[in-house]
């Protein structure tokens, strides 16, 4: 079987499990909404949340909520003991990595769709520079999903993974986070000069997209 065929089988399985259990998406969304609310109350000034915090709140909420879903990404395999079975396919470990990274991307994409309007609403801000913000979010989410999937896979058998995942993930995605906040700030202020930041994000994305599946394969080798 080809990589595409096995990937599709595994992705279909993950989508089916997610649709049935609903726990991963439900908890991630709930966590993200709570984050926004807490941030909104935390940044109150003269009775209103300050608009200048929107980029930071948006990206930090996405990063925090992506950690929540990453901690459960390999839960179906762990629970039933199928990790060995799905990581030794004829196409190696690549289909498993792609299917899991795609699932993570779908989850964080859905969270973004909910969180972005919520942040704008709570911080009473109008969305300007939609194209630039969308590009930054797209690049940021792809990078976070790929490197996040790698971290999640590396820590799947580690006892303190709830603690270790943020410690490994956050510094690794810091360049994406900083660039994403910068692009969103500039876009909301209708400014110019997002090109360099977006290029930087693209470079990190390429690095993560190439290196993560390779490292994942090495880590899962017998």
């Amino acid at each position: 079987m080809t990589v595409a065929r096995i990937t599709w089988l595994l992705l279909k399985k993950d989508l089916r499990i997610a649709a049935r259990s609903r726990e991963m998406l439900g908890f991630t969304l709930l966590f993200a909404v709570l984050c926004v609310i807490v941030f909104a109350f935390g940044f109150l000034q003269e009775g209103a949340a300050t608009a200048g915090y929107v980029p930071g709140v948006l990206w930090v909420t996405l990063l925090f909520s992506s950690s929540v879903s990453l901690l459960r990404l390999f839960a179906p395999e762990e629970e039933g003991g199928t990790l060995d079975l799905v990581s030794s396919t004829a196409a190696g470990t690549l289909p498993l990595f792609i299917s899991k990274a795609t699932m993570q991307l779908l989850f964080t994409g859905l969270v973004t769709v909910v969180v972005l309007p919520l942040v704008l609403l709570f911080f009473n801000t109008e969305l300007k520079g939609f194209g630039q913000t969308a590009a930054a979010l797209g690049l940021g989410l792809v990078g976070m999903a790929t490197v996040g999937t790698l971290c999640s896979a590396l820590l799947v058998h580690v006892r303190l993974r709830e603690v270790l995942l943020p410690l490994v993930l956050y510094p690794t995605v810091a360049p994406l986070l900083i660039s994403g906040v910068k692009v969103t700030s500039i876009a909301l202020a209708e400014g110019e000069g997002t090109g360099d930041w977006l290029t930087l994000m693209l470079i990190f994305d390429l690095l993560f997209v190439v290196a993560s599946p390779w490292l994942h394969g090495r880590a899962l080798q017998r």
């Binding site: 089916r16 003991g81 199928t82 060995d84």
Partner: peptide, 14 residues
């Protein structure tokens, strides 16, 4: 092994 090597949220047939 001790764990049956199955996905708990899929049916036996699946």
């Amino acid at each position: 092994q001790h764990r049956p090597g199955l996905y708990f949220d899929l049916t036996g047939l699946e």
